[in-house]
Simulated scan of single mutants.
Amino acid sequence: MSSSFVVRTARDTDAERITAIEADADRMLIDLFQAEAWPAPDSAALRLRAPGTVLVCASPSHDVVGFAHLLEQDGHAHHEQLSVLPRLGRRDSVACS
C-alpha cells in the first residue's frame, strides 16, 4: 500500500511546523558531525516572507512533514533549504501529487 503526499505552497499557518522540522533535521546533522555548536534554525515566519518560494510536503493526514525553500539568484535556481522529518527520510519512493 503506498501513501500519497501532497506538495503545496507553504502557508503562514505552517511556520511553526516548518521551524520544528528544520530543528529535528538539524539534530540528525549535529549528531552525525558531532558538532559542539550549531546555529538555531531560521524563523520560518521570516523564511516565508523572504524572497523565493517555500513548498511543503503534507502527509495523507495533512500534517506537514517536510519543506523546501527555493530562490532565484542571478537568474539561476537555488535550493536554499530542504528539511524532512528524520523518521520519513531516506525512503525508496514516495508518491506525491
Rank of each mutant, 00 (worst) to 15 (best):
D12N: 06
T13P: 03
T13S: 15
T13K: 06
D14G: 02
A15P: 06
R17N: 03
R17I: 13
I18A: 06
T19H: 06
A20V: 12
I21A: 09
E22Y: 01
A23K: 10
A23C: 09
D24C: 14
D24I: 03
A25M: 07
D26I: 13
D26S: 14
D26E: 09
L29I: 14
I30R: 10
I30K: 03
D31W: 00
L32S: 09
L32Q: 09
L32V: 11
F33I: 14
A35I: 10
A35G: 05
E36W: 00
E36M: 03
E36H: 05
A37K: 03
A37P: 00
W38K: 07
W38F: 13
W38P: 07
P39V: 12
P39A: 13
P39M: 09
P39R: 15
P39S: 14
A40E: 13
A40W: 02
P41F: 02
D42N: 09
D42G: 12
D42E: 11
S43F: 00
S43W: 00
A44M: 07
A44W: 02
A44R: 08
A44G: 11
A45N: 03
A45I: 10
L46G: 05
L46S: 12
L46N: 08
L46M: 03
R47N: 02
L48C: 11
R49N: 02
A50W: 01
A50G: 08
A50R: 07
P51M: 03
P51S: 09
G52Q: 10
T53I: 13
V54S: 03
V54C: 07
L55D: 06
L55R: 14
V56D: 04
V56L: 04
C57T: 15
A58S: 11
P60N: 03
P60A: 12
P60S: 07
S61Y: 00
S61W: 00
S61I: 08
H62G: 11
D63Y: 01
D63M: 07
V64E: 03
G66D: 05
F67R: 05
A68P: 11
H69N: 13
L70N: 02
L70G: 07
L71K: 12
L71Q: 10
E72A: 06
E72R: 07
E72W: 01
Q73T: 05
G75F: 00
G75L: 02
G75C: 00
H76I: 02
H76K: 07
H76F: 00
A77T: 13
A77N: 04
A77V: 11
H78N: 05
H78R: 10
E80Y: 15
E80P: 09
Q81L: 14
L82I: 15
L82M: 15
S83P: 10
S83A: 15
S83D: 13
S83E: 04
V84T: 11
V84W: 01
V84F: 04
L85S: 06
P86F: 00
P86K: 03
P86D: 04
L88H: 02
L88F: 01
G89M: 13
G89Q: 15
G89R: 13
R90V: 08
R90K: 12
D92V: 14
S93K: 06
S93A: 11
